[in-house]
Structures are given as C-alpha cells and as structure tokens.
Amino acid sequence: MSSGAANHPLVQLFIARFREFIRTPEAVFWSYVFPLVMMISLGLAFRSDSVEPVAVCVQEGPQADELIQTLQGNPRFVVLRGSPEECRQMLRSGKAELVLTAEGSGTEAVYHYQLDQTRPGSVSARDAVNDALQIAAGRKDPVGTKQTAVTEAGSRYIDFLVPGLIGMGLMGGGVWGVGYAIVDMRIRQVLKRLLGTPMKKHHFVAAMMASRMVFMIPEIIVILILSRLMFSVVSHGGYLLIGVIVLLGAFQFASIGLIIASRARTLEAVAGLMNLTMVPMWIGSGIFFSAERFPDLVQPVIRLLPLTPVISSLRQVMQEGAGLITILPDLGLMLAWLVITFVVALRIFRWD
C-alpha cells in the first residue's frame, strides 16, 4: 500500500477503530465468546437423543399395583406413586406430566387422567399412556401400522437455533458496536477533535461500518464451523447466500446503530435507546422459538422488525435449501431498512 493510501482518513479511522476493539477484552468476549457459549450450551441442552421417558404419577388406590406393573414394563414411562396430594404436587411442579387413577375394576374399569392441557407434554403423555393401557387390556387395531425411523439433517432444534444466533450476533454487533462506540467517542470529545482533521463525514461513517464487517465476518465463520464440527449443522442452500444475507444484515444493523447514536450524548441514553430497539427483536423475531407462535394480530408488525427477515432468510437457506428468488422479499426489506436508516442518520448526525 502506498504512503498516500495508508494515510487516507478512511484507512486511518479504520485502523484506529480496529485497535480500539482488540484492546477491549469485554468487546471481544461479547462479540466472539458469548455467541459460541450460547450455541454450545443450548445445543447440548436440546441435543437430539432418543425420546425422553414420560413421568407418570399413579395415584394410590385398589388398582394402583396393576397399573404400575403394566406401565413399568414399557421403557417410555417413568412410573411414580403417591397420594392424591403428592401426585398433584408432582404435576404442579413438573416432576410428572400426568396423574393416573383407575376407577372400578375388570370390564367396568375407567382410567382417569389428570393433566394440564396447556402443556403439550402432558397431552402427549396421556395419549401414550392410554395406548399402552388399552393394548395391555387386549385392544386390537383394525388397521396394521408400520414405522420407519428417519433422521433428517435440519430438523433438530440446534439447526433451528444456529440461524437465530447468527442473526442475534449481527444485531448486537451492529447496534452495540457502532452505536455505543460513537457515543463513547462523543463523550470523550474524540468526535469534536476529528472535525479538525482532513476527514469528511462519510469517511468516518464508512470506517465505522467497515470495521464492524471485519469484526463480524470471523464471528459468523467460527459459529458456522463449530456448529458443523460439534453438531453436524449444514446449510442445504450452500454458503454463498448466507454470505449475502450476513453482509446485508451487518450493514443494516450498523446503520440502525448509527441512527441510534446520532443524537445521544450519554451512555445511559444510548443504552436505553439500544435496549428499546433490540428487546422487541429479541422477543419477537424468532431467535429461540418461531415467531409464528405470536397471534395473527401482531404478525404484520413482527415481519417488519429488522431482525425478522435476517433470521427468516437464514433459516430458509440453511434448513430448506431456498434459493435467491425465494428470499428476495426478505432481502428487499433488509435493504429498505439499510437505506432509510442510513440516509436519516447522515442528516441528523451531530458531532458534539
């Protein structure tokens, strides 16, 4: 690189921002270590092992021994026993999915299930226990069934989680990495001193956004490599489109961070604005669970959140193998956020 190019304001600002970042251990931790810890922890917690056994509490009664003997022979069930109060306590605390009682005897027997129907596990437990008891009592299905166990890459929770963590990293890196850094520079009067240098406003903005890209790319690469090595997470749509989404998403959130920091003068103010911006996306954009769980009434708002198209397009590419045409609406929404926030930020940005 020639001395003229090396001394260009854009290059010098980029170098200064890079040095500031690597000299801040907490910034390195939150940018690189924290997303990996989240991925590894949740990947291990929700790993796809064999189906967990269902805990059933058999309530004391004349038929309790017979029920326990029938269910204990099935590896799908963990059979507990207790009084009515003890069984209700187990159900309330989550130690049991179901309370079972047999009323009557012989052909007059009736199985009484107590469960919380708002818990999907309890409903599934009732169906599984009832099937086991009915088969033991001699039930014959009129139509035969056959089952084939199939494991499809992309169907596990970790496959769902990794795109969400990538999106969360893009959002946090862009909003915090740009917004917080600018306000900190404003407080330390660095921005005012920069005005006395041969630097233009667009040099500063470009250096801030370019530095975020340099910091962000290694983070995403490490997440993708470790998720592949540790949990066999693959992208069915390849990695070129992931690169396009990451690039556009990083610039989008850097622009949002820029507009947040454009007028804030204290760290408390910018922290409040960033939390106000990011918390709705943490909750509603589907990082840890599907955004479709929210009521239809709020779905139009959720789809317009900046993080939603990022995660949606990543999941479509990685899990469904979607192509460019499929994710164009999401890319268009990301581009709209980028252009609008960047133009507004440049117009309202203050140096003091």
Score class of each variant (00 low, 15 high):
residue 80 L to K: 12
residue 36 L to G: 03
residue 164 G to V: 06
residue 241 L to E: 02
residue 339 V to D: 01
residue 108 E to V: 02
residue 282 W to F: 15
residue 251 F to Y: 13
residue 141 D to K: 10
residue 249 G to Q: 01
residue 298 V to W: 03
residue 64 A to H: 00
residue 242 I to Q: 02
residue 100 L to T: 09
residue 105 S to I: 10
residue 58 V to D: 00
residue 81 R to E: 13
residue 26 E to Q: 13
residue 335 L to D: 02
residue 210 A to T: 06
residue 156 R to E: 12
residue 35 P to H: 09
residue 87 C to N: 07
residue 96 A to G: 03
residue 344 V to Y: 01
residue 336 A to W: 12
residue 100 L to M: 12
residue 127 D to I: 15
residue 49 D to N: 11
residue 57 C to W: 01
residue 156 R to H: 11
residue 51 V to N: 11
residue 102 A to W: 04
residue 146 K to A: 11
residue 130 N to C: 04
residue 110 V to L: 14
residue 196 G to P: 09
residue 89 Q to I: 07
residue 92 R to I: 06
residue 277 T to A: 14
residue 285 S to G: 01
residue 325 I to K: 13
residue 303 R to I: 07
residue 86 E to A: 12
residue 198 P to S: 09
residue 265 R to C: 01
residue 258 L to F: 11
residue 154 G to Q: 03
residue 63 Q to R: 15
residue 237 G to A: 09
residue 270 V to W: 05
residue 287 I to E: 04
residue 75 P to C: 07
residue 24 T to P: 00
residue 49 D to H: 08
residue 46 F to P: 04
residue 54 V to M: 14
residue 290 S to L: 10
residue 125 A to H: 06
residue 195 L to R: 14
residue 199 M to I: 15
residue 92 R to M: 10
residue 338 L to S: 12
residue 191 L to S: 10
residue 68 I to P: 01
residue 167 G to L: 02
residue 119 R to N: 11
residue 58 V to R: 00
residue 43 G to W: 07
residue 341 T to Q: 03
residue 213 M to T: 08
residue 88 R to Y: 10
residue 277 T to G: 03
residue 125 A to W: 08
residue 241 L to F: 03
residue 90 M to S: 00
residue 333 L to P: 00
residue 109 A to L: 15
residue 340 I to P: 01
residue 48 S to D: 11
residue 131 D to Y: 05
residue 34 F to Y: 10
residue 7 N to C: 10
residue 254 A to R: 02
residue 99 V to E: 12
residue 320 E to A: 14
residue 113 Y to I: 00
residue 282 W to E: 06
residue 253 F to H: 03
residue 225 I to C: 01
residue 190 V to A: 09
